[in-house]
Design a protein around this nucleic acid. Structure first.
Length: 191
DNA sequence: GGTGTGATCGTA
DNA sequence: ACGATCACACCA
């Protein structure tokens, strides 16, 4: 289990360290839903024009302003959920968007939650896809990643020494920052 | 492989 | 009015 102190630095520090960690949802009665984190983006809160926190605290983004090591889940495009790991000290909005996972066994429950997926690399290769695959929705906004139903685990696989670094995807503001990190050559990284 | 478009609704 | 997206159609 990653300790809470892991998340206490800002999102730009934490983001590359989250690569190759394992996101697990132990869903009672539905088994274990899990994937290895292979793509993330850093959002730097009130100083970042691309962050939901840029214009201050609202009911929607309140979790981001709370203590580190919790899950910030938001709804977008009228139909999709996306999930972040909240970073920084309590009161500071800083978060890492989880953008892609490499699916981990058992794969059957992941396929069941992603009926449109045709190939294994379609299961979790996007921020909304991975939430659908792991059953993450608004019920999990604020969930404790250290002791809650959804956790991030270190299974001993280190982050890549030299992650791929690129601009963030799907934003209009602050597009010049290279705050997207991914595992080189992993087929599950979003296109 | 790439590009373009419709879906769908909470939020500010 | 727009969004930290996805799936599908179409072209190559």
């Amino acid at each position: 289990m990653l300790p809470r102190d892991f998340y206490r630095r800002d999102a730009l520090d934490v983001a590359p360290r989250l690569l190759n960690k394992v996101l697990v949802h132990d869903d009672p009665g539905h088994g274990r839903l899990a994937g290895r984190i292979v793509e993330v983006e850093a959002y730097m809160g009130e100083h970042d024009p691309a962050s939901h926190a840029y214009r201050g605290r609202t009911p929607r983004n309140a979790t981001m302003f709370g203590p580190p090591g919790h899950l910030y889940v938001y709804f977008t495009y009228g139909m999709h959920w996306c999930a972040n790991a909240v970073c920084g000290e309590d009161g500071v909005a800083s978060a890492v968007l989880l953008r892609a996972l490499a699916p981990l066994p058992p794969l059957e429950p992941l396929w069941a939650r992603r009926p449109t997926a045709r190939r294994e690399r379609d299961l979790c290769s996007g921020p909304a896809k991975l939430c659908q695959a792991l059953g993450i929705d608004k019920e999990f906004d604020g969930e404790d990643l250290v002791e809650g139903r959804i956790r991030i685990v270190d299974d001993g696989t280190p982050p890549p020494d030299e992650p791929d670094v690129s601009p963030r995807i799907g934003i209009r503001e602050a597009v010049d920052h290279l705050w997207r990190f991914s595992v080189p050559a992993d087929p599950n990284v979003s296109r």
